[in-house]
Design a protein around this nucleic acid. Sequence first.
DNA 1: TTTTTGAGTGTTAACGTTCACGGCGTGAAT
DNA 2: ATTCACGCCGTGAACGTTAACACTCAAAAA
Lengths: 368, 368
Amino acid sequence: MGLIPNLLHMNPRKPSGIKEIARLAKVSIGTVDRVLHNRKGVAASTRARVLRIIEQTGYTKNITASRLKLASTHRIRIAILIPEISEPWSYWRLQQNGIEKAAAELKELGVTVAYFYFDVNKPADFRKKWQKIRTADFQAVVTVPFLKKAVTQLLEEAEVHHVQVVFLDTERPLLGKACFIRQNSYDAGRVAGRLLYGLVGEQGHYLVVNLLRDAKIQINCQQREEGFRSFFKENAPHLLPQLHTLNHPLNTDELLAGVLEPFVKPERPLGIFVSSARAFMVAGALRHFPHSKTFLAGFDLNQQNIACLKKGEIHFIIHQKPEYQGYTAVKSIYNHLVHEEAPAVKVDIPIEIIVKENLPSYIHREWA
Amino acid sequence: MGLIPNLLHMNPRKPSGIKEIARLAKVSIGTVDRVLHNRKGVAASTRARVLRIIEQTGYTKNITASRLKLASTHRIRIAILIPEISEPWSYWRLQQNGIEKAAAELKELGVTVAYFYFDVNKPADFRKKWQKIRTADFQAVVTVPFLKKAVTQLLEEAEVHHVQVVFLDTERPLLGKACFIRQNSYDAGRVAGRLLYGLVGEQGHYLVVNLLRDAKIQINCQQREEGFRSFFKENAPHLLPQLHTLNHPLNTDELLAGVLEPFVKPERPLGIFVSSARAFMVAGALRHFPHSKTFLAGFDLNQQNIACLKKGEIHFIIHQKPEYQGYTAVKSIYNHLVHEEAPAVKVDIPIEIIVKENLPSYIHREWA
DNA sequence: TTTTTGAGTGTTAACGTTCACGGCGTGAAT
DNA sequence: ATTCACGCCGTGAACGTTAACACTCAAAAA
């Protein structure tokens, strides 16, 4: 340890980075810095010379050093504008966990995130919170595209104020060049079609169950159903007469089991695609028909779905990786702001298929 | 931009980090540094006082600043000891792509990786390359546990020389506390069992195809078969008589189609599980039996398998995410060496299921 | 002619961490 | 009494980047 003299200190390494560029271009580091940041105050000839050296040496700036310097003065501020988190295991809580993990990693690089929660039923609340964000110079905002008109306004104002917008979990055809982190719902529906068709086969019937909140269907669920139907249209069009849809309001008095009864026949297999995260409710209702040959596919690894998967009551779950979405949103924004040549944030979350047997490899592990 | 005076420069922020600790403990930053690095030369009372302050303030060192300083003197050197890469699309090439991506990200933090390739058929070559690594002070080595005896020796010597070892793609029961990045082959086989059973059902027959290189079965393939069989043992033991194994040497003169023929009967469905990355070969052979009801599952998203998946000749692919494995190996080593409290590297790659419909979400996307 | 401007430069002090070096003391050896 | 050793601690120069500030000339304004 102490026996070997420290050779590195005897022959100092030749400087790399901006200092080396300055030496080669016969200017000071100040000038190189001005060129790199496109600041004025550099003669055209000097600028060209410096740029040539930068080109030739393939210089890239040391982001570690840059962020170390900037962390104290020019922080990167990201606003998170998401629906109020009611249940402790809600989808947005998971997204937020991912966001917080990213924030922790980026903290010492001068990145801060601030949360703003809005009431999904009140567009005015969304607008109000956005105005707070807009007037508080954030570089970026991560939000959801639920409230169509309010979001359109947000996009326009964000463009004017140079605030980067990233949508989580969006499906709405996005105006302009908005960024997003989402899973393709249409394709996810197609995957569910493939999986249930494989299990149920030609002799069976099929049912799409949309569980409605406030009597209206979510856009995600709608697109998933379209994808599901498109699979059959392309691969087994003769089965379309056997493919039905059940829209069932969650806040109804009717029991789900009762509504399902006409579809469940002991003599023929039934494939049920639940377009939302509540497949476990359908699984519960199906316990009234113990001798039916029913196969169930749905979304999201919440605790109830996991339990049903383990018991064999749900056969396939499609995972949306909410934590990963949140994590990726923040990380991508950072990368985009820091490496200027980095592409805009457009991430398609893979459509991951969970069955009973690969569940452990998903829940016993870090998700990032 | 220039209109607002820079307030941050007028009221300087109170220092954070080591300086603040020093101020509170009424010592210099040198002493704090000595305490943080457990170096001698600090009075016991002073050390206790500093440690108390560190505890109270919840100080954590700024790794950005630390690496900036250390990058020039104490680089983190990682050796990669993997089989020679023959084919351009080989599995190890993909792993190496992931490694290189991680290396690029960590370059400015003073991390360097060096590659050593060995001939998988020559344990002596493996040993020779390892000796080169051992004598060249690397902090860590990423390798594969193929050659049992040579690897045991490596592990012992690495422990003595404080070289961290991380195995890629391992299944061998690992001696001691070795680290790994792998997919659980047994569980992957079980997943394949679930998927094929779902498609083929009770009336079908099942076949495990092990494609042998040099007449011997790879340990991965063996464990996958065990997992596959265990699924049927648990879920459909009555089908075990209908479950056969075919070990087929790749360098034989016999045609695969000929060997498969006795198993393929037009009247009954057949589920084939190929335990390696060459399911496309079985798919090719099956083209001789166009009217058979055959279902095929295998591993890895190589180009031939992808083509078969798109054509519907292969029904399920299990993805091992080789690029992600390589990336994770290097990143995890870095995190472990840099955050001393970080856990040892033990990563289970999730068993990801690919069908025709979710393939696009896997191949049109960054894997990290 | 002298002063003033300002465009084009160089200089320097940070950001938080690291570590060699040197400078105090106190106690032991000469 | 003078030297030497050594435990304990502070100082300062880096790492590469940033940006305010200071300086130097020219040409334009007085």
